[in-house]
Design a protein around this nucleic acid. Sequence first.
DNA 1: GTCTATATAGTGATAGAC
DNA 2: GTCTATCACTATATAGAC
Lengths: 206, 206
Amino acid sequence: MAKNSQLEESIMKAAEELFLQNGFDATSTTDIAKSAGCTQALVHYYYRTKENLFQQIFTQKFQLLISHIHEKNNQVNDLELALRNFVDSYFDTLSKNRQIPFFLIKELIMNEERRQRMRMRMITDAGSLQYYTDWDKLIKSEIAKGNIRPIDTMDLTIDVVSLVVFTFISLPLYSDLFEQNEEEIRAYLQRRKEEVITLILKGLRK
Amino acid sequence: MAKNSQLEESIMKAAEELFLQNGFDATSTTDIAKSAGCTQALVHYYYRTKENLFQQIFTQKFQLLISHIHEKNNQVNDLELALRNFVDSYFDTLSKNRQIPFFLIKELIMNEERRQRMRMRMITDAGSLQYYTDWDKLIKSEIAKGNIRPIDTMDLTIDVVSLVVFTFISLPLYSDLFEQNEEEIRAYLQRRKEEVITLILKGLRK
DNA sequence: GTCTATATAGTGATAGAC
DNA sequence: GTCTATCACTATATAGAC
C-alpha cells in the first residue's frame, strides 16, 4: 500500500460500486479487476483478500451514517426541530446514497462476524452513546411537560428509522412496480420525507 | 414427479429452511441434499434445477403474504378497525414467519427477473387490485367526512408497511445488539405492534 | 429411484517470470 | 508493479451403472 498508481484507487472504486450493487457474495475479484481494467492478480496484490477489500468499504459506509448522526447533534433542546432536522437531513443523505441501507442491513444480517464487529464498535463509541442519552433526556422531559404522549425512547427511535430506512430499502421494488423514472423517484422521495415528518409529529401528540 | 417417496417432500422441506435462512446464492444443492439425507444427484432428479426448486418456495411464501391480505378484506367500513385488524394480524403472521420479509425483499431486489414476474402477478391479480380500490375509497371517504387529515392512500399504505415490515427486517440486528432471548423478543414484538397501531391512528388525526 | 462418477465452469489466492 | 499460469476448491447439472 505505497504511494503508487491510481490503479489501487480505481480498484477500490470498482469494488465499491460492485459491492454496493451486488453484495459481497455476488461480486468476484475477477469482476472487480475487469471493471478496474487490470488482471485479477493485481486486486489481490493490492488488497490481499477480497474480505479485506470489502471490509474497508463496509466500514466507510457504516461510518458515513454514524458520523451523520453526530454532526446533527447540535440543537437538542427543541424536540420538533430535532426531529425535523434529523429526518430531513437523513432523507437527503440517503437520497444521494440509495443503496446503502439495504447494503448494510443485508451484509450485517448475512454475516454473524460482521454483526459482532458492529456491535463492539457501537458499544465502545462514546459519541453514539452520548447522543442517545441526550435524546432520551429530551424525550422524557417533553413527556413530563405534557407536550407529547408517553412513549419509550427506543420505540420512537425505531419508528423514525423504520419510516426513513424502509423507504430506501423498498425503492427498487416501488420504482420498478410503478415504472418510475428518475424525476418521478425524486418527487416520490420528497413526498415521503414530508409524510414521515408529519406522521411522526402528529403521532406524538397526546 | 410421481407419487413416490417422502424423500421429495423432505428435500423440499430442507430447501425451504436453507433458502429462508441463507438465501438463494448461499445455499448449494449439496447443502440441501445433506440436510435432507440423500445425495446431491437426487435433488436434481426430483427438481431438475436449483432455480426451479427455489421458485416453488419463493412463490409459496409470496402467496402466503398476499392471501393473508385478501382474507382480512372483510370489515372495510370502519377505518380504525380495518387498520387495527390489519396491523394486528400481520404482526402475528410475521411473528411466526420472521425471515419471510427479508427473504422476499432480498431475492426481489437482487434478481431483476423475479421482480418482473412478481410485477406481472400483481398486475393481473384482480383480488389485490379490488382490495386496493376498496381501501382507497374508504380513505377518501374518511377524509371527506373530516375524520382524518388529508393523506394519499399510497402514502398511508407505505407508512403501515414500513412500520410493520422493518420491525422484522431489523429484528436479527436488534436482538443481537441487545442480546435478547426468545421471551424478550416476543415481548418486544408485542410492544412494537401496539406502538405501530398507536402511531398510525394518532398520526392520522387532523 | 438411487447411487457414483464426471463434465464444465467458476471461485480466491499465490508462485514465479519479467 | 504487472503479468501468466496454476493450485485447490466448490458449484450445478447430467450420464450411466445398478
